[in-house]
């Protein structure tokens, strides 16, 4: 039985080869429009849409390297999506 959750965390060690599987899974998710994260049957489904703020940060501190990718976006309620609204241009009324 599956339920939903609002948080997903997973930590593991990977190498240059095995990490590709993770990146590919994310790539597929963006392509299909839905990213599924699940632990023990509890699902978090994200549907990226609209504008996505992408923050890329790379750091070298001695031998320690850190590369972080952060994506942020807002989930919009269906009817408020500006794409769905007709674009109206109205003349400015003269006084």
């Amino acid at each position: 039985m599956s339920s939903t959750t609002n948080r997903f965390r997973h930590e593991s060690l990977q190498d240059c080869q095995s990490i590709i599987n993770y990146l590919a899974a994310l790539k597929d998710g963006f392509e299909s429009g839905a990213l599924l994260f699940s632990t023990d049957g509890r699902n978090l489904v994200l549907k990226p849409e609209g504008l996505i703020n992408l923050h890329v940060e790379a750091k070298r501190k001695g031998e320690e390297i850190k590369l972080s990718l952060k994506m942020r976006w807002n989930e919009k309620k269906g009817s408020e999506d500006p794409e769905d609204q007709p674009l109206l241009i109205e003349p400015i009324k003269a006084n």
């Binding site: 997973h10 593991s12 599987n21 993770y22 590919a24 899974a25 994310l26 597929d28 998710g29 990213l35 599924l36 994260f37 699940s38 632990t39 023990d40």
Partner: peptide
């Protein structure tokens, strides 16, 4: 750990 899925990547427990 429990089984984890990230998209179609299935990781066993």
């Amino acid at each position: 750990t429990k089984p984890v899925a990230i998209g179609n990547l299935q990781l066993p427990s």
